[in-house]
Write a protein that binds this DNA or RNA. Structure first.
Lengths: 193, 193
DNA sequence: CGCCTGTCTTAACCTGGATTAAGTTTTCCG
DNA sequence: CGGAAAACTTAATCCAGGTTAAGACAGGCG
């Protein structure tokens, strides 16, 4: 469990033991209870978050108080409000824990120091960001061109584990429908009478 | 004009003249007529594209033949089907020119060589990818939580130059409505009788 | 164990935006 | 400069998905 992050990094770049220690020294660990926040609207996102266990969500809250989920992060995923993190200005997004979670975080200044000490990390985070871009592009295909039913099917195909793990209302907030409509939809799928 | 790309890179990282030449040597230049394709569904995206002049679009075509625009790229923007580029497998997206354009491209093998010769490029492309992630996250806020009218307003705020430059039907395909509905909407905005 | 809050369901009604189908510019290019 | 194709508009009709409201069913906590 101690090595979960280092293993993840080493799947993308080589890292000496020494460098591994430097990385771990920059990380702050914290346990997060269900429903507790890492970030709220108006905060400046100071750190990148790495999920060791549990599951987080990144979401916005609209003018009517409805939540819209931009991304989930299960164990082994990084998450941040990238806009706020990059510009160090107040953001409009929330991050909280859907389940009790363990999260490791690096502050922006510390990560900039890490880039100086271990340039290979530039590559690691480039690859992660490029993968995120690929995932977001594909999600736009889904969200612009598919019906709610097809978006649900895409979600099941892409994240079969999450379907089992998440309450239905969060899946609704991710695929962009109301919980009521998702419920109706699932009934129709199961009783195609 | 020759230095357009190098200036863009130097806004993010320092680059010696020597390194600049190495970068330029890896780029293939091409002129692209309006409506000509850089990429079509089923192709493997072999290169990253940098727009020197003109404007490109990245889009998918749904089962009914309707186009859905994931991103525009004006002068000074990079564009690719990231999924296809990273995995080197057949993609589901199209890239074509909305206007006559000049595009410079680097193939994936060549860019991997550039990373070896000029490690600072890892940082350049990390920063670009992180900015893209920030933009996509914000676009999801818009697309999940705003009405068509508000999405149009957001688009105007974010890309005021493009509003003037683009035919209306492409803006419709970007904000996710039909051209007919966008036309009706604009009328209502102008005649609030 | 019980209750209280959060989650899911059902159903009636409503609306933003799609569809279809003409007509009206505009633009482009031969 | 003319003719065809592309771009935009208008309007009638339709439907996916939202809204509202109410009840059913957990399941975590005191």
């Amino acid at each position: 469990m101690e090595d979960f992050l280092l293993e993840h990094i080493r799947r993308h770049i080589p890292l000496t033991d020494e460098e591994g220690k430097t990385v771990l020294a920059a990380m702050r660990r914290r346990k997060l209870k269900k429903k507790h926040f890492l970030l709220q609207e108006g905060d400046v996102n100071q750190s990148s978050f790495f999920v060791v266990s549990g599951i987080l969500r990144l979401y916005s809250v609209d003018a009517n108080g409805f939540e819209h989920i931009i991304q989930f992060a299960a164990a082994g995923w990084w998450m941040s409000d990238m806009q706020s993190l990059l510009t160090q200005t107040a953001g409009n997004l929330y991050i909280d824990a859907i389940e009790d979670s363990e999260v490791w975080q690096v502050s922006k200044p510390d990560i900039d120091l890490l880039y100086q000490k271990i340039p290979a990390l530039e590559r690691y985070f480039r690859l992660l960001a490029e993968n995120a871009v690929a995932a977001y592009q594909q999600r736009f295909v889904s969200s612009l061109s598919q019906s709610a039913k097809d978006r649900y099917a895409s979600f099941c195909r892409l994240y079969p584990g999450l379907i089992l793990q998440l309450p239905q209302k969060h899946i609704a907030a991710y695929i962009g429908v109301t919980p009521e409509f998702l419920s109706k939809m699932l009934n129709q799928l199961n009783n195609p009478s």
